[in-house]
């Protein structure tokens, strides 16, 4: 019973947060709505007994990605939103149509064999087991991931730094 209440509340928060995040004109408000969405999703992960993932979700998405987004917004546009300008893109109608179509397509397999029996057998939520898995069979994946993150870090730094143009001779500056 308490699980169901938690599920409905969390999913309502997640949907509302996502909607506000994509529809809000003020970007800072949008980012905070996005973080509420992330937090609700973390709650859902807890509900699914994946507690390590829930912690990582908060740590990475709210703690790092959210902050990064805030920094990017502060560094670029006027944060109060695109004043008076059109918020939506040219083909927004077709975008909506495609999104709705995708939703229908995703829904169809999900609601086949509608009432599935509830699974009561809980998985062992041991973080220790996860750690052993990461260090034993999946250690190569982990290393590749570390390499990817390092590469992404360096790439991001170089991309954001911008290429310094060599000063042309006699250019009026």
């Amino acid at each position: 019973m308490s699980e169901q209440i938690a599920f409905w509340i969390l999913s309502a928060i997640a949907v509302l947060g996502a909607l506000v995040a994509v529809r809000k004109r003020n970007l800072i408000h949008g980012v905070f709505a996005l973080m509420i969405f992330f937090a609700a999703l973390s709650g859902l992960f807890l509900l699914l007994l994946a507690e390590f993932i829930a912690a990582v979700q908060i740590l990475v998405y709210i703690g790092a990605v959210g902050i990064l987004l805030l920094f990017a917004i502060m560094l670029t546009e006027r944060v109060a939103g695109d004043d008076g300008r059109r918020m939506t893109s040219r083909g927004w109608f077709w975008g909506l149509v495609v999104a709705a179509a995708v939703f229908v397509v995703l829904l169809l397999p999900a609601i086949q064999q509608w009432p599935t029996p509830e699974v009561t057998q809980a998985p062992d939520p041991s973080v220790e087991e996860l750690g052993h898995k990461l260090m034993n069979p999946y250690v190569m994946t982990l290393e590749v991931l570390a390499l990817l993150l390092t590469a992404a870090l360096i790439g991001a730094v170089t991309a954001a730094q911008g290429m310094r143009k060599p000063k042309e001779e006699g250019s009026p500056e």
């Binding site: 507690e51 990582v56 908060i58 740590l59 709210i62 703690g63 902050i67």
Partner: peptide
């Protein structure tokens, strides 16, 4: 099971 990592995750929200 992941109390310590939860601790760090939630402390980060202060930012």
């Amino acid at each position: 099971d992941g109390a310590v990592i939860f601790f760090f995750a939630i402390t980060g929200l202060n930012t």
